[in-house]
Structures are given as structure tokens and as C-alpha cells.
Design a binder for these strands. Structure first.
Lengths: 204, 204, 204, 204
DNA sequence: AATGAATGAGTTTTCATTCAT
DNA sequence: GATGAATGAAAACTCATTCAT
């Protein structure tokens, strides 16, 4: 069934990727989901009609962008995790990845915030976000497992995750938000204090 | 050309308040700024035209709503602060107010999130939000003043504020977000640990 | 609650009527439902937005037009019926009304045909058309009641109604379709022959 | 630049036939000309681009489908006509063919109606339909030739043809339309009565 | 003060058609 | 022959905003 000529390399993946990137850029630029398919398509270098050819609807484009951003985060975490890390190193790696330079880029932060809000409206967006949140949570708990008991691990993970998310949202405050190094210090400090307290308690 | 009826006096404040409340309700319901002036006006019991009579534009309505929500928060904080509180009690009161039942109502949380996002777009919204953030920060620092040194106070305040905001944003996760008591415990625990560490360090 | 000034006479009925008439005109002109809201609105002297202000959707406009055309037909029938007509006169009056000059106007015929087709797609359009068809049928049966027995009345009514509808559809053939007088003669002849046969049979 | 495979011979007629059949199916299903080239092509098992390769335009596809449906009708008539039929048998055969099981299939009836409407818009469609109408008319007149005089034959043919078309259009009424046997009876009865009247008149 | 009426500008989506391969 | 890719044009519908009354 194939043509005898060079197989046309699928435009589809490239076009979809271009649209996803353009979507994140435009959302980051507008700091809002109020972005038209026209804007996205133009930035991706194609007509609106073509954008609709590759995605079923505007919502589908947004969800693809969200999936992309979450999977990029997953990739960033995995890149910093190694089997021979100590539990504490593992936690630091997660914090580092969560507040990494890529994740902290203005447009990515904007996109995350916007998607958090969207998650309240779109069930599918909510589902995606919950998956991300649970993965972060279980990553943290997994690192804490050898350092504190399970209930404590759960609590500390929740606190750390909240703090990370809070740091993101505070980016909306521009200059008043903590910088990346400050952010890392805040979260690592929080984790250290909790671990230390736990050790102190159990030494009694 | 005057109306034949008695000119109603003082309608303006009532009308504006009705619109502000309606705005918050609709934003909370829609979990988004994608709310039409028509919806707001209808919920406030008036025509769209009248809404535009009392507010210059849709943006102005949103800003008024944001101002209202922030000032309500300020009122909540002041209500829990007393001159004869200990510094630590003062901190707990701020946490309590920030995570109070009123602030934690679903529609209020939604509105806050939406406004946080909006702050990235609208300079005026950003300005309002910074005012709120600085007030929260200085309230916390004021409470920490007698317990830790100024740089530490600054850091702890930033951590606590981030955690509070993070708890809010995690509300987008619905069931996976910490409950109100859990939220209070997380933040108070964070503050306690930091104070304790500081005391321990300075005792050396 | 009313203003002291002259009560604004409702634009609504006038606008809706204008839209309905414009719709029939445009459908008649285009000989098809492929008519845009823009065309209809322009012919009715208003913007598309206003057309959507007065009607919920394009479909609603079409249905209103259909209702109008059917009710006009009903009015035409009632105008020709008198209590003191003989049964046969009554039948002629119905035929006359069904093939009257107004109903036979090109644009009205086009509209009827288009609505007949639409009735296969839109349940509401189908409902409207069935109401019309049953009314025509029962009008004919009512006239035939004293001339033939019930089963015969039903059959003759069906034949006459089919013939009338067929004459309409043949209008699509332009010059090859029967003229109005020919049309009347065809249907009346059909009715007469059936009544005569029935009389002959029962005289045996 | 030729394809590497054996050039497939005689694909064209098969492809065109597939498209024509697919068109009729889709029109019948949608009960409307609002059918996209994409739908037609997919049902015919090919790409839209290929459909445009075989037909100049969407209109050309529709016209081909119309030609097909009309020629199928012609074939159905010819299949029931025999040289040794009596004139009356000949008329019955035409009626039988016009209301035959094949012609009465839902999707064919729908297609006919849609084409009737289309005939008002497209001159070419109108031309095709007139050809069909004249053939039906002359077939009927040819059968009536020995039974009544020419003017009477013309009138009866017009009445019968109108009734047949009317029966088709009433299909839009679904349950309220005459069934196939009822339909045949109605038309044959109409013809019989007219012939009988003529005989009676000329016997005087 | 209050509102129904009115609209321009914009948004998503669809589709016939063309073109490169 | 055959198709995926691409687009311009158009259509329905929405909405903030204005205006006459």
C-alpha cells in the first residue's frame, strides 16, 4: 500500500508538537487561557484550519499542552533521580527538579497556574493534574520512607508539595516572589526540620 | 426629563455591592474569569446596561471584586488580632484568619486563584495582589519579630505565606487537597519548627 | 414599575415578524435552507447579532417561519369556509385555499418544499408538518362525511391531499407544472369522480 | 513518475459508481443535501482528494447521483413493460414501477425529495428532473392513448404524476403517509375512475 | 436611574478545493 | 492513481459596550 517514493515522514507529530509549544508560549505570554486558536496557529506557523485538522477542538489543544508540560516535569524529575542516591539526596533531587530552571521559566510557570485554574473547570484537566500531584506526593513519600514513619511522611510530603505549589503561584507577584535559590532553601529547610524533629522524637 | 418617582438616594453603593458579590459568586461558580457581564448583572438583579452604568468596564468590575475580597481578608485578620496576644498567638491568629472558614469557602478559594492568575495580566490586579501579599508578610514578620532575628523572620514569613497560598491552589485538586484543620496544622507546625530551631541555635 | 413616558412599544413582535418574513423571502429566493442568518438579518434590516438576540438559534428562526407559513395557510382555509356551505362547496373551498394565489406564490411554494424536506431531519419541523397534514386531512374528511362513508372519506382525503402536495412539488419543474386553474380542476375532478362512484355504488 | 504498480485499468467507472452510491446513501441518511464530500468519500472508501479527482466539484457528484437515480427509475419502468401488455396493464406497470419497492426505499425517497428541491436552484438539476417528468408523462400518455382522447390523456397523466409525486413528498410525514399498497390503490383508482368516466361520456 | 435595543468585532469550527508527493 | 497536508472563505453564535428613551 505504501508509495514507492520516499515515505512521507509524518507531518502529524511535528505539527502537533509545534501547536503544543505554541500553545504554551501563547498562554505564557497572555498569562491566561484567553488565547485564540488563531494566535496559537499563527505562532505555530500554520492556518487555524490546520490546527483544527490536527486537534479535535481548542480544548484538545489545551489538554495536549497540559499533558506535555506535566510529562516534561516527569522527565525532569527522572533525570535527577539515581538508584544510588541516599534518601535525603533523593528528596533534594525532587525539589531541585520541581523548582528547576526549566520549570521556573516564566511561560512555564504561567502555564502551570493557568492549568491549575482550568483543572477546576475541566474534568479531564483535573484528572491530569491529580495524576501529577499524586506522582509528586508518592515520590516525596518514597524518599521519606526510610527517614520518618508513614503518617509523618504523608504530612511532610503534603507540606512540601503545598510549599512548592505556593512558590509557583507567588510568581504572579513578580518581584515579591522568592527567587529560585531562595525557593529551594525554603523547601529543603522545611524537609530538614521535619526530619530532624522526627529523629529527635524517636531518640527519646 | 427626571423620573416621576422619588429619586432613590444611595442606590449606588448598594448596586455596586450587589455587583461585586454577584461577580465573586459567578467567578466562584465558573471557576474562571470567563464570566459575562450579563451573568453578573442578572445575578445582581439588574440589566447589563445598568452594570455598565455603575462600572466603567468589565475589568473595573473584576477589580472591585478583587478589592472586596482582599479587604474582607484584611477584616478577617483584624478580627482575630488583639493587643494582648503573645507573639506566637498572633501568628496563629493570622494563620487562622488566612485559612478561616470564610476564606476557605469554595467560591472564595476559586476567586482567589482566578485573581492570582489575573494578576499576571492586569497591572492593577497585580498591584492589588502585591499589597495583600506585603500586608500578610509584614503581619507575619511583626509576629515573628520577638521570636527570631529579622532575616529569619523574613524567611519564615515567606515560607509560611507560600505554604498558605500553596494550600489554596491545591484546592483545585479537590479531594487531594488538605482539609482546613490539616492545613492549619501544616502551617503552624512549620512555624513552630522554625522558631524552635532558632531558639536551639541561639542557645548554643 | 412602568416608566412615566410613553411605554416603549415592543420592538420584539415587529422584529420577529420582520425576521420571519425575511426568512421566507430568502428561502424562496434561494429555493433552499442554505440561507445564512446574515442574509436573513440583512433583508430584515438588522444585524446578525440582533437576529440572535430575538431568536435562540438559526433553527428557531426557521421553525418560526414554518409556523408562520402553516398558520397563514390555516387562516386562508378558514377565510373560505362558511357554516352555510354545502359539503361539496366546503371541499372546493379547501381546495381553493390550498391552491390559492397566496399559497401558490413562488417563494411560498419554495418554502413549503424546503420545509417538507426539513421535516425529515428536524423532529420539531416534522411535528409541525404533521399537524398541518392532519388538519388538512380532517378538514377534507369533515367535508366528505355526508357524501361517502368513513373509510371512503379517509381514502379520498388521502388521495386529494397527495395530489395537492404533488402539485406543489411539481412546481420545481417550473413550466411543466400544472397552472393554478389546472391544478384546481385536477383535484376537484378527482373528488367529483370519487363521490360519483360512491353514489353509483350505493344506489345499486 | 508513474506509479510502480501495474496501472489499474478501469478503476474510473468503479470509483465513480462507488461515489454515486455513497452520495445517495449519505443524502438518504441525512435527508438533506447537507452532506460533505468527506462523508461521501469515506463511505465510498477513498479520500476526499480522490473524489475531487474523479468529479469536478461537489455539484458534479450530486448531479451524477441524480442522473443515476433517474436512470435507475427508467430501468425499473422498462423492466415492467412488455410489448404484449394491454394499455391498462401498461399503466399499472408504470404505477407499479414508480411506487416499486426499490423506489420506495427510505433513502431513495429522501434522495428524490432532496433532488426536487435542488432542481429549483441548479439549472442542470432542473433539466434532469424535467427529462424524468416528461418521460413519465409520455409513458402515461402512451398508455392512455387507446383509452381516452389526447387532451384527456394529458390531464389524467398530469393528475396521476402529481399524485405519485405527492405520495413521495408525504413520506416526510412518516407514519401519516400512505403505505405502498395504499399508494398503488390510490393512483390506480384515480386512473380507473377517469377512464370509466371517459367511456361513459363517449357512450352517450 | 434603568432598560431594551442594537451592533461591531471576534471566536470556534467546518468545508470545498488544491497541491506536492 | 491516490492521499495527507494545507488553506481561504464563510457561518453560527457571543459579548462588551453604547444609546435612545
Amino acid at each position: 500500500m505504501k508509495s514507492c517514493l520516499m515515505p512521507k515522514i509524518g507531518q502529524e507529530p511535528a505539527r502537533r508538537a509545534a501547536l503544543v509549544n505554541a500553545t504554551i508560549s501563547e498562554i505564557g505570554l497572555a498569562c491566561s487561557l484567553d488565547v485564540t486558536v488563531g494566535q496559537i496557529a499563527r505562532r505555530a506557523g500554520m492556518s487555524t484550519a490546520l490546527a483544527h485538522y490536527y486537534f479535535e477542538s481548542k480544548d484538545a489543544i489545551f489538554l495536549a499542552a497540559m499533558r506535555h508540560i506535566i510529562s516534561e516535569y516527569g522527565r525532569a524529575v527522572r533525570a535527577l533521580l539515581h538508584p544510588d542516591q541516599s534518601p535525603r539526596e533523593r528528596l533534594s533531587a525532587i525539589v531541585e527538579a520541581s523548582l528547576g530552571r526549566d520549570q521556573f521559566a516564566d511561560e512555564i510557570v504561567s502555564a502551570w497556574l493557568v492549568f491549575y485554574v482550568e483543572a477546576q473547570r475541566s474534568p479531564e484537566a483535573g484528572r491530569l493534574l491529580k495524576i501529577y500531584a499524586r506522582r509528586l506526593h508518592s515520590n516525596l513519600v518514597y524518599g521519606l520512607r526510610f527517614l520518618v514513619d508513614p503518617p509523618a511522611a504523608h504530612g511532610i510530603a503534603q507540606g512540601a508539595a503545598s510549599m512548592i505549589d505556593g512558590i509557583y503561584i507567588r510568581h504572579a507577584l513578580q518581584s515579591d516572589a522568592p527567587s529560585r535559590p531562595q525557593a529551594r532553601a525554603l523547601v529543603n529547610n522545611y524537609i530538614d526540620l521535619n526530619i530532624a524533629r522526627y529523629s529527635a522524637k524517636t531518640e527519646d
